[in-house]
């Protein structure tokens, strides 16, 4: 996705804009990296719903995951990719442009 500094609306991203995906991106942008269960808890969604949204974001190249052990169990950690972070911030700028001054 290309972003044009002169036109914030070019950053509007339909993949990110879906409410839960926007919240996932906001969470990961703030946290840096978060465990799947924490994201689920913060968003108040089921594991399957979160998994579907994460899959969409991963297919878009916006989110990456890694597996690590927490409390002796293997957990999935999620993080925004560089592309995802840029897309999310551009999308936020587009939303602000829509809201106006």
């Amino acid at each position: 996705m290309s972003t044009n500094a002169a036109d914030p609306m070019s950053g509007f991203d339909t993949t990110i804009h879906a409410p839960n995906r926007l919240r996932i991106c906001a969470l990961l942008d703030t946290a840096g990296e978060a465990e799947f269960g924490v994201v689920q808890e913060q968003l108040g969604v089921s594991a399957s719903v979160l998994s579907k949204h994460v899959t969409v974001l991963m297919e878009a190249g916006y989110v990456e995951q890694r597996k690590a052990v927490r409390d002796t169990r293997q957990r999935v950690w999620l993080a925004l990719t560089r592309q995802g972070r840029e897309a999310f911030r551009a999308h936020q700028a587009a939303l602000r442009a829509i809201v106006g001054p």
């Binding site: 926007l22 906001a26 968003l43 809201v99």
Partner: peptide, 18 residues
Amino acid sequence: QPTPEQARAALADADEVR
């Protein structure tokens, strides 16, 4: 593309998560 009200609500939602 959302209306200004929807965009405002989306930003508020994201801020709440943040």
